[in-house]
């Protein structure tokens, strides 16, 4: 192409600007996920507490409803506080949409299964993992983030395992593995990325003013 004008009338500079904007949006979306890394850690810990309660403490039928309600309330309060004053890109809103839809779907599914008395089927346990895996998979695809893609596969793998495990202890082991690696470790990794980003930003500002 000899001229700077493209075939459809878009100039090269304009295209470069668009690419830069898209790259900035992807980076912002990934930063947004990293900023909410604590949610993954919190839910991982909530799984551990709920399972510990269900195994070792009395009133075990209340373990999951109480822990999940606490998690939802804490998540909503902290997210609202953090959202005040933070800028939001289109991409981070897209990622939020994915997780909001996942939360509503999983809550409706779990409530319906619990109330109707079908909460002990292998397909039910597997579906819970596949819901989370689906949300991670969509986020990973949108953000082009390989690590999150691996987490999606971990959840899909755990969901698949649910159809093959036999005993209650094996089910617990799969749940604990998913909660530890897919929630806590991924959440800590996201938080570490957020810290590194914040430190780099401070350093840039210091250099700028120096």
């Amino acid at each position: 192409m000899t001229t700077s004008e493209m075939d459809n009338g878009t100039t090269r500079d304009e295209l470069l600007q668009r690419v830069a904007l898209m790259e900035a949006m992807i980076a912002e979306g990934r930063k947004s996920t990293a900023r909410y890394g604590w949610i993954f850690v919190m839910w991982g810990l909530i799984y551990f507490v709920a399972m510990g309660w269900a195994v070792f403490l009395p009133f075990k039928e209340w373990a999951w409803p109480v822990c999940v309600t606490v998690g939802v309330v804490v998540g909503m309060v902290r997210t609202r506080r953090r959202a005040d004053g933070s800028s939001e890109s289109q991409r981070s809103r897209t990622i939020e949409a994915v997780w909001q839809a996942m939360c509503v779907a999983i809550i409706l599914y779990v409530i319906a299964a619990g109330v109707s008395g079908h909460g002990n089927q292998a397909a039910y346990y597997a579906a819970v993992f596949f819901f989370v895996g689906l949300a991670h998979g969509i986020s990973a695809r949108i953000l082009g983030w390989g690590v999150q893609g691996l987490v999606a596969f971990l959840f899909w793998g755990c969901g698949t395992a649910m159809f093959f495990v036999q005993t209650r202890n094996q089910i617990l082991a799969v749940f604990l593995a998913a909660a530890f690696f897919g929630m806590i470790c991924f959440g800590l990794y996201a938080m570490m990325l957020e810290r590194q980003r914040a430190a780099a930003q401070v350093q840039r500002q210091v250099q700028h003013y120096a």
Partner: peptide
């Protein structure tokens, strides 16, 4: 493969 195709939870999911 895991013989869970008969579960109502599968269709619902």
């Amino acid at each position: 493969l895991g013989h869970g195709a008969g579960h109502i939870a599968l269709a619902a999911a």
